[in-house]
Simulated assay, not measured.
Amino acid sequence: MVSNFVNSVKQRNILKGQFLQFIFVGSLNAIIDLGFLDISLWLYPTNDQTLLILFNTAAYILAIVNSYIWNSRLAFKGYAQKDVREKVFFLIQAGISLIISNLIFIAGIRFFTLCRFSLWFIQNISKVLAMISPSIASFLFMKYFVFKRLKAA
């Protein structure tokens, strides 16, 4: 009974530490993601949905590569195998998160356009919203699928 309690406390502390490290990596990802989008929109201002999705996707891919590098070395260091299975699962979660990101990004732009804010504000607030939900989904997917240690047979 005592050992179950001790293990439970250890698991919570590990989860809290991983989540804090994930937040740190996520902050770096947000800078890359939002930074690339803003640079793209500054160089090629547009409200064309196809270009916006293209810019968002490119920004997201840069951030997701950064995410894998840092999460495998920091937040999930003791769990990362860096094998084919892990990379495939990471790509699957990245693809799912990208779809979520693009849907929220475009929906946010459509919604905030009704409010008559500046185009820069609309695109940036939509991007921030498009980063939040996929980040939560990514943490859970990485924690329980991507960087999950396989039990020895």
Rank of each mutant, 00 (worst) to 15 (best):
F89A: 11
T50C: 11
L140W: 09
F36V: 14
T50Q: 06
T57R: 02
I32V: 12
A59R: 03
K82L: 13
Q123E: 15
S133P: 03
L91F: 12
A107Q: 14
A152W: 10
F147T: 11
I96P: 02
L129V: 08
L114E: 09
I136F: 10
K77E: 01
K16I: 14
I64S: 08
T46S: 15
V9T: 08
L34T: 09
A130H: 07
Q49G: 06
Q11M: 13
Q81V: 00
Q81F: 01
S27Y: 04
L41Q: 03
I100D: 01
I106Q: 15
G26T: 04
I109R: 01
N7S: 12
A137S: 12
P45D: 09
Y144R: 06
F105V: 10
A63D: 02
I106R: 09
L129T: 08
Y79F: 12
S118I: 09
D33Q: 03
F24R: 01
N124L: 04
Y144C: 04
V6H: 09
L15Q: 06
V25C: 04
N13S: 12
S67E: 03
R73V: 02
L119N: 08
S27A: 14
R73H: 12
Q21D: 10
K82H: 15
N13T: 11
F105A: 14
L62W: 01
C115W: 09
L140M: 08
F5G: 03
F76E: 08
W42F: 14
F55H: 00
R12L: 12
F141T: 05
W42P: 01
A30S: 06
N66Y: 03
L54Q: 05
L37I: 13
I92C: 11
N56F: 02
K127T: 05
V128E: 01
I92F: 13
M1Q: 06
M1L: 07
Q93D: 08
W70L: 14
I39N: 05
S67V: 06
L129N: 05
F36P: 00
A107L: 13
N4R: 11
F117K: 07
A59V: 02
I61R: 04
W120C: 00
L34F: 14
I122V: 08
A153H: 13
I132Y: 04
I64F: 08
N66K: 05
A58Q: 03
S133H: 03
V84T: 07
V9E: 03
I100G: 01
I122H: 00
T113R: 10
